[in-house]
Simulated scan of single mutants.
Amino acid sequence: MEQALADILADILPRTAVPYHVILARICGALLCVTVIGIEREMRGRPAGLRTHLLVGLAAAVFGLLAGEVVRAPIYDIDQVRSDPLRVVEAVTAGVAFLAAGLIVFAKGEVHGLTTGAGVWLAAAIGLSVGLGFWIIAIFATLVGTVVLHLLYQVERHLGWK
């Protein structure tokens, strides 16, 4: 019975390539970064707001973490299994592109939702960046994305484009 409990605990908390406290930091970091984008979209009353951006960023970070762990996991270190973390990037990109496409609407001769779709795509890229450990890329993308969404919106309004 004791051995069974130890086996279950070892299965729940296996050895990881990235320490658990770093995993937690990456998940929290991804959530903090995409919160900035999500709040901006929420303030504009867009269909994909804070919760959507948080879920997309969280999922992308988890996929990034899993990709890194699978590549380094001893159980997959056999000739028949080839790990390629770029496939995860491609899969996340394709999945989020599908989600973003659902946000884009063509009505009355006008396209709506392109910026929201792009924001969701950006949230996934930010989450994936942090999940894979590329914090600087994620932070810089968050800052630039915020400038594009907020400040350029103000410029467009000032110029009468919106």
Rank of each mutant, 00 (worst) to 15 (best):
M1W: 05
E2K: 12
A4W: 13
L5A: 07
A6H: 08
D7I: 09
I8S: 12
I8H: 12
L9P: 01
L9H: 11
D11N: 10
D11S: 09
L13G: 01
R15M: 11
T16P: 07
P19E: 14
P19T: 14
Y20P: 04
Y20L: 09
V22H: 11
I23T: 09
L24M: 10
A25I: 09
R26S: 02
R26D: 05
I27T: 09
G29N: 09
G29H: 08
C33T: 04
V34Y: 08
V34K: 10
V34G: 14
V34S: 13
V34I: 14
V34H: 14
T35A: 11
V36W: 12
I37E: 06
G38I: 05
I39G: 04
E40H: 12
E40F: 10
E40P: 10
R41G: 09
M43H: 10
P47A: 01
P47G: 06
A48R: 01
L50K: 05
R51L: 06
H53Y: 06
H53W: 07
V56E: 00
G57P: 02
G57A: 02
L58S: 04
A59N: 01
A59P: 02
A59L: 05
A59Q: 03
A61I: 03
F63D: 03
G64I: 07
G64D: 06
L65T: 01
L66T: 10
A67D: 11
A67H: 12
G68L: 01
G68M: 01
E69L: 03
E69A: 01
V71F: 01
R72D: 06
R72L: 06
R72M: 11
A73E: 06
P74N: 05
Y76I: 00
D77P: 04
I78P: 00
D79I: 07
V81M: 07
R82D: 07
R82M: 08
S83Y: 11
D84Y: 09
L86Q: 14
R87F: 15
V96L: 08
F98G: 00
L99T: 08
A100H: 05
G102P: 14
L103V: 14
I104N: 06
I104M: 09
I104V: 13
F106L: 13
F106W: 12
A107E: 15
K108V: 07
V111T: 07
G117H: 06
G117S: 04
A118P: 00
G119F: 05
A123N: 00
I126R: 00
G127T: 00
L128H: 00
L128S: 01
L128M: 01
S129E: 07
V130I: 15
V130T: 05
G131Q: 07
G131T: 05
G131C: 06
L132A: 09
L132K: 03
G133Q: 04
I136Q: 09
I137C: 10
F140S: 10
F140P: 00
A141P: 04
A141M: 13
T142D: 03
L143E: 03
L143P: 06
V147Q: 11
V147A: 15
L149R: 13
H150E: 05
L151S: 11
L151G: 04
L151D: 10
L152P: 10
Y153G: 07
Q154S: 13
Q154L: 15
V155M: 08
H158Y: 12
L159V: 13
G160A: 05
G160P: 12
W161L: 15
W161E: 12
W161A: 13
K162S: 15
K162W: 15
K162L: 15
